[in-house]
């Protein structure tokens, strides 16, 4: 397996506070890789640095061999790296279909083509029945699925999922986990931030552990979770397995 996404020595600080220091790891093509760590470990900041929302102070991000750090988010998205937000950000003045259509325009310039693509993505995710629903009235679980649908509509090679399961019921979370595996089986590479260790052990092939903005360890999920330092960092924060 070759590394599709290569995070190389990323550093980021806010004022005097160091959020990330020399973070480095590689995401192999076709993997589901988890970034775990306690609250405040810098997981979302790392995502923001990869997806272009924030500019890292140091280091490189290579995607398919190309350096993408410092590019604007829309450029990174068009290169094939899409993300979702932990705090969902629907376009509340639009329907579900229109939300997805905005994303589909990244690959199709003409309206009818974009709409067909958006409908296909919705059908794929079993969301076709809510196409005409106003995004403003959806519940949390549906908004999370809308986030994924929009990200998929940009035809990404890599999907960055930021805490997709937080706040969902066990059944909803299990359904979403199945969906994420199905996406991988279709060839997508997935990098996800997750607070809950059991979710990661059930879902991910590989894991990176962040602690206080630094990589604690990285490797196959089982080995990483068996690491004593990881257990220390997580002491008392284990959540019940949703799968």
């Amino acid at each position: 397996m070759t590394a599709l996404l290569d995070v190389d020595g990323i550093g980021k600080s806010f004022g005097g506070l160091t959020a990330l220091r020399d973070v480095a790891f590689q995401v192999p093509q076709g993997a589901i890789m988890g970034i775990i760590g306690p609250n405040g470990a810098g997981k979302t900041t790392l995502f923001n640095c990869i997806s272009g929302l924030m500019k890292p102070d140091a280091g490189r991000v290579r995607f398919g061999g190309r350096e993408i750090q410092g590019l604007r988010p829309h450029r990174i998205c068009r290169l094939g790296l899409a993300r979702t937000f932990q705090i969902v950000r629907p376009f509340r003045g639009m329907s579900v279909l229109e939300n997805v259509k905005v994303a589909a325009f990244a690959r199709h310039d003409r309206g009818p083509a974009a709409e067909a693509h958006a409908r296909a993505v919705l059908a794929d995710l079993g969301m076709a029945h809510m196409a005409a629903t106003d995004a403003g009235i959806l519940g949390v679980a549906e908004l999370r699925r809308l986030e994924i649908a929009r990200a998929l509509a940009t035809d990404p090679q890599v999907l960055l999922l930021d805490e997709m399961l937080a706040g969902l019921t066990a059944t909803e979370a299990a359904a979403l986990c199945d969906q994420i595996r199905a996406l991988r089986d279709r060839g997508l590479t997935i990098l996800l931030v997750e607070h809950s260790v059991p979710v990661v052990s059930a879902l991910c092939d590989r894991a990176v552990v962040l602690n206080f903005g630094e990589v604690l360890t990285e490797g196959p999920t089982a080995a990483v979770l068996a690491d004593g330092r990881v257990q220390d960092a997580y002491l008392g924060s284990a959540a019940p397995c949703p799968t």
Binding site: P73, A82, F85
Partner: peptide, 26 residues
């Protein structure tokens, strides 16, 4: 409004950061 431009405008109105992450040059 019915073409790409309109969809991009409305996405910017509703949430700039989400729009940019979905490939909209805001």
């Amino acid at each position: 409004l019915r073409a790409k431009t309109g969809y991009y405008w409305r996405s910017i109105r509703d949430n700039e950061e989400a729009a940019e992450a979905l490939g909209v040059p805001i």
